[in-house]
């Protein structure tokens, strides 16, 4: 029987390399491409027949659009409209990667720290560049807590800088840890089902409940990643 951690292994499906650089197509690549293709297809079907009275697909596509549009309106404000494409893309990609991972025997892309950290790093660098473009060197005032006495600054500024630098780490680790822990738990409980023979029905019932919880977490973590991205963009636009 497969161990609970074997699901996270990456296998090359099509070995490729340029010089010493390994660019093999792996199961991770395939599932990332699938997440992109399915989310794009979902929206293309939804937007393809823009009817006055929306059908099921159009309704779902519009629902996801409005969800993110409202989120941006509430967290950033009306000047956040410009950043809708990147925020929406991030949300849909993470959501579909998480949900694809819930299909039995599939691979969860977001359970790899490389993937989540790459996304978090893009957000971090993008937000920092945005803040510099918007405020120039005035951006450094972000690291000074408002209303603090000047003699505290040598202590407070390093703390604020470390806090700022910890953003991509907490952003990526949160998503990665949730996915890793959830999927490991599912497989561990699934192991009990066979080990307990007739009484395996109990862990099986638990497994059904946990699968539901994991689907909720798939949505929740995509939402959390998105809302934090929105908050970082808001900080970059308005500083304090």
């Amino acid at each position: 029987m497969a161990g609970p951690l074997e699901q996270f292994e990456i296998h090359p499906i099509m070995p490729l390399s340029i010089g010493n650089l390994d660019i093999s197509i792996t199961n991770s690549t395939v599932y990332m491409a699938a997440a992109v293709a399915i989310s794009a297809g979902f929206l293309a079907i939804g937007a393809g027949r823009a009817a006055m009275v929306p059908g099921r697909w159009q309704n779902m596509a519009e629902l996801s659009y409005e969800f993110i549009a409202n989120l941006i309106k509430e967290t950033i404000g009306s000047d956040g409209r410009k950043y809708f494409p990147i925020i929406f893309t991030l949300f849909m990609f993470i959501l579909f990667a998480n949900l694809l991972g819930m299909i039995p025997f599939s691979f969860t892309v977001t359970s790899q720290i490389v993937v989540t950290f790459a996304m978090a790093a893009v957000v971090f660098v993008g937000v920092t560049v945005l803040a510099f473009a918007k405020h120039g060197t005035h951006f450094f005032s972000f690291f000074v807590p408002p209303g603090s006495p000047v003699w505290m600054w040598p202590l407070l500024i390093p703390i604020e800088v470390i806090s700022y630098l910890s953003r991509p780490i907490s952003l990526s680790v949160r998503l990665f840890a949730n996915m890793l822990a959830g999927h490991t738990l599912l497989k561990v409980i699934a192991g009990f089902v066979f080990a307990l023979n007739v009484f395996g029905i109990l862990p099986l019932a638990l497994l059904v409940a946990l699968t539901g919880l994991e689907i909720l977490i798939a949505f929740l973590q995509a939402y959390v990643f998105t809302i934090l991205t929105c908050l970082y963009i808001k900080d970059a636009l308005h500083l304090h």
């Binding site: 470390i162 806090s163 630098l165 953003r167 780490i169 907490s170 680790v173 949160r174 840890a177 929740l220």
Partner: peptide
Amino acid sequence: GPTGLGTGMRIAVDLVAGIAVGVVI
């Protein structure tokens, strides 16, 4: 509201991330 587990996880990760960055620096 957000679930208790989610809230706890978020806060724990926030704390650890700060320490991790400090240690690495």
